[in-house]
Structure formats: C-alpha cells, structure tokens
Design a protein around this nucleic acid. Sequence first.
DNA 1: TAGATTGTTAATCGATTAACAATC
DNA 2: TAGATTGTTAATCGATTAACAATC
Lengths: 222, 222
Amino acid sequence: MLKTKVSFAPSVRRLPQYLHIIRASLAAGDTYISGTVIAQELNLEPIQVRKDLAITGIIGKPKKGYPVPALVQAIERYLGWDQSHTALLVGAGNLGSALAGYPEFARHGLNFVAAFDTDPGKIGKQIHGVTIHDMAKLGELAGSLKACMAVLAVPSPNAQATADILVKAGIRAIWNFTNIKLKVDPEVVVQREDLSSGFAILSVMMNTRNTCGTKPGHAKED
Amino acid sequence: MLKTKVSFAPSVRRLPQYLHIIRASLAAGDTYISGTVIAQELNLEPIQVRKDLAITGIIGKPKKGYPVPALVQAIERYLGWDQSHTALLVGAGNLGSALAGYPEFARHGLNFVAAFDTDPGKIGKQIHGVTIHDMAKLGELAGSLKACMAVLAVPSPNAQATADILVKAGIRAIWNFTNIKLKVDPEVVVQREDLSSGFAILSVMMNTRNTCGTKPGHAKED
DNA sequence: TAGATTGTTAATCGATTAACAATC
DNA sequence: TAGATTGTTAATCGATTAACAATC
C-alpha cells in the first residue's frame, strides 16, 4: 500500500462537518454564511475554518462570508462527493448493514451494487435494497459488477484473504473496518476505520479526569 | 464540553494497534518483542513506536525489546482497559447492535448493562444478551443502573435531546456516533466518531490518484 | 565481544494560531 | 462611512523523525 497520505488530512476530515452545517444553512435559505458562524457551531477557531475552506477553492466576500450554494458545491466537488462510486459491501453483518443503510453515504456518492456474506441464511436476501451474494462468488462477481471500491466489514481473521480476492478482482479502493492492517498492492487505496482508537481516546480522557472513578490516583497529566 | 484534548492523541490512537500485535505475540509465546518488529508490521517508523510505548511507562531491554506480558499490561493500564466500565447502549439499530456485539470492546472493559430504543418491536428483546428498554424510560432507568458512560447511536435529529437526558441522568462520558456536535455540560467527556471524515479521506485519495476515474483531469496535488 | 535495540536529546516538519492589510 | 470578515504572511506549537550514546 503506497504511502498515499492526503495532504492536509486534518482539514479534509473537518470538511464533512462544515458541509453538514452549511447544508442546513442552505436549507434555511441563507445566501451567505461566515467562517465565524461555522466556527462557533463547531467550537473551532474562525481562522481554522477559513484556512480549511480555502483548500476547496471557494472565495468569500469580506463582511458577508461565503456564498452558501457555491460553498456546498465547492466542498462536494473537492471531496468527489458530487459523483457516484459503485461499491461492494463485503460482510453483511450488523456493521456492514449499518453502513449500507446510512443515508448520508448514499448522498455522498456511495452506491452499493452488491453485498457478500458467508451466512447461508442471508444469501439471496436483501439489505437496504442490495442483494446479498455468497462470499464464495465474490471473485467471479466482483469483476463483472465493475465496482471500483469495497467496504470491508468481515470478521478480522478473514480480512486479509478477502482483501486479496477483492484486489485480484480489480477493486482499487478499500474502506477497511477490520482491525487488520491490510497488505495490498501499492496501487490500491486503503482507508482504515479503527473504532478502537476512538475508544482509546475516550478511555484516557475518562482516566485523566476520573470520570468514572474506579482507579483512585491514576489521573495522569493535568 | 471542556476542551479535554488528550495530550499525545495521535500516540494514544496508535496504542490499540500495537496492543493487537503484542497480544498475538503473547499468544505465540514470545517473551520479548522489539519496536522494530511492531513498526514493520504496521508500516511505521521504529522510533515512533518506541516513543509511543514510552508514554505507557514500559521499559525495554536493549537488544531484546520489550517484555511481552508486561507490555500488554502497561498499555491496558494506561488506556484504562484493565477495568470495567458499565455502559448504556442508546439506539439499538444496526450500528448500535454492531458495537454492542463487538467482542473487542468487551475485552476492553466496555460492559453494556442496558439498551434503549423507540421501536416497540425491539423493546423487551435482547441484543447480545442486553435487554432493550423503551427510550422513554431512559431518564428514570439510567440513574438506577449506575452506568457511567453511554454509546450514542440514535438518528442524528434525536442526538442532542437524547444527550441532554443522559447527562441529566448522571452519565459522564458519551461515545457519540451521530454526526451532531453535542452541546453538553463541561464536566461531560465526549468522543465523537465521525465516519464521514474517514470517507472524505478515502474520497480525496481516490480523486488524487484517479482510482475510480470518473472525473478526468481532476487529480489535484501530487 | 559485536551488534541490535533502547531511550534521550536535538532537528525537522507540518498544522494551528496570530497579526493585519484589503475590502465589501 | 464604519466595521465585520476575508485571505495572506508570519509566528507558534506540537508531532514526527534523526542522531547517537548507553547497554544487554
């Protein structure tokens, strides 16, 4: 896997949050929204919002702010959320189902064309309008479906083997929800979503501030 | 919400990944593991692994590495994963069910004592051994259950109102899976898990490298 | 012993924040 | 006009990486 670090990764991660607020502003009929307002809403510094928005190419007006419809478009375009991407759902368990059914992703161009699972009880059924196929047929079907990306939500022990099949079938982007660091062809883009890392942050915050005081005197740092 | 930024947040986020590898090493019967090996496995710099592990207080041996069982303990202790935390699952949809059933979280001390949902078809049933209660009873039950934290996986429009109830009921830590920035008492610790941000990174990587070439000539940066 | 690996101290890199002139 | 807000340029801050002596 190539070191495809996104330049400005922290900024890119904040853009969806801005988008959410700006869309609400659009729905409310506003024509302009200022970085100051967005910052207030998200507890950020106004300068940070302005810097982040600048990478999308949007140009604001002093005193007024940013034109709302153009700003929505600029963010969506920068993120590539203005175009559709066909995707496979690989692993149709609870997590996979939740992702496939998340309406926000559909709005961001994530278009599931097929799902795969090993559970015979699921094969043939549908989740959120997507048919579940036998995982054994992943290899042969993936190619003909012409999907470019896959959401990987299988049990961790199967992650690497499944990824291998996906790559062999021509998948070029994997959104990886397993806790396995995948070893794939350098051409393939992988984004790993590590839920444990978020829980680690929460745990340390709880520890530090003795939020759920079970461990007396363990509060480290200040 | 207080600005409870975890010092060393990036390091803390990597610790669970290390832990995963080190546990495998423990299971394999190794007595020592070097930072070099861990780094190789995760495609990181050895110096970064050493720096990260240092914050847990572990002390390694030159030439050998870190004592495996002590290292596992040190990380778990630093993260607070060596103790149990009673938690409420609020919102028993697909995502909530996935989280409650994720065995890794149970191993990290996340102990669900009750779930809540508005769906009458779910109330009274169980998911992963946890009884689902009527969301309307959240306020009265939360207090008596003495849970200290809550996993919030309700539809976004209900997020703030539900959080208010939780805080009023004494919950002091919220793991927030909605895309709403919660406004809560400064005492309360909130960790927001934003799936869209990960998808934004993946999208930009795909764009940049023309992975799923739909937009000719849009590859920005190099 | 020789050499791999640690932990420390310093250098680099990138992201955030500050300052401020430009402007609608 | 007056003042809020932008975009730019510079300063600060923190995280990553490099260098290297210590050591088992």
